[in-house]
Design a binder for these strands. Sequence first.
DNA 1: CAGATGTGCAACTCCATGGTTGCGTGTTGT
DNA 2: ACAACACGCAACCATGGAGTTGCACATCTG
Lengths: 107, 107
Amino acid sequence: MSRADPGEVLAALGDPTRQQIVTRLASGQARTATELARDLPITRQGVAKHLATLRDARVVHREEVGRESRYRLDRDAIAAARSWIADVEATWDARLDRLADLAERDD
Amino acid sequence: MSRADPGEVLAALGDPTRQQIVTRLASGQARTATELARDLPITRQGVAKHLATLRDARVVHREEVGRESRYRLDRDAIAAARSWIADVEATWDARLDRLADLAERDD
DNA sequence: CAGATGTGCAACTCCATGGTTGCGTGTTGT
DNA sequence: ACAACACGCAACCATGGAGTTGCACATCTG
């Protein structure tokens, strides 16, 4: 089972509708596509497609219960994306530190 | 000067090519579109368009020097995106904590 | 000044994808 | 058993955006 690819997760989180879905899933219970569609201006199938791409990116996983399937956040994938961004920041900071060193050494 | 919108930043970071550009910009100096295009399988104009959307999302800002314009990372916007993700995680964690409370109270 | 280099802008493809409708199937509950 | 509900899948449409080429303009250099 391959781990979540940060880049893919970022791409999944890039869409505004999917951002809303993720927000909904974070603040409440695991929800079904039909429930989510009630809050959104798109159809159930539209939501379902978004959930599919979120599932491909491992941001979400499906739990089938009887005739309905509920979707739950997968914390690890989201953490991977945050980690990627944090790495960019860290690298950037390191570069600034080097510049600071040069400035000091310049005195 | 309106601040960076996390959603817009996420969208900007969603594209794989732009992810590479951001990585390049994080690990080195401010670069020009022509320089970046050398590392990438697309033309300079392609890179320029990506830099434009990164600039719209405040992920990057332009520094015009003579006839060339160099692009530099804007740390704040990236931090905003990371913060958004962190919020999702925090909300999710808080929900899990509430569940734990209920479980305890259930004993 | 003339050529080389760097850039931005505009027009043009083309494909990925967000969104829809329609349908068939499985589950629930009365 | 049967109606209502929930879902997945497939076909379809339209728009956006990634990428290209072409060109005009600005800047540097010999």
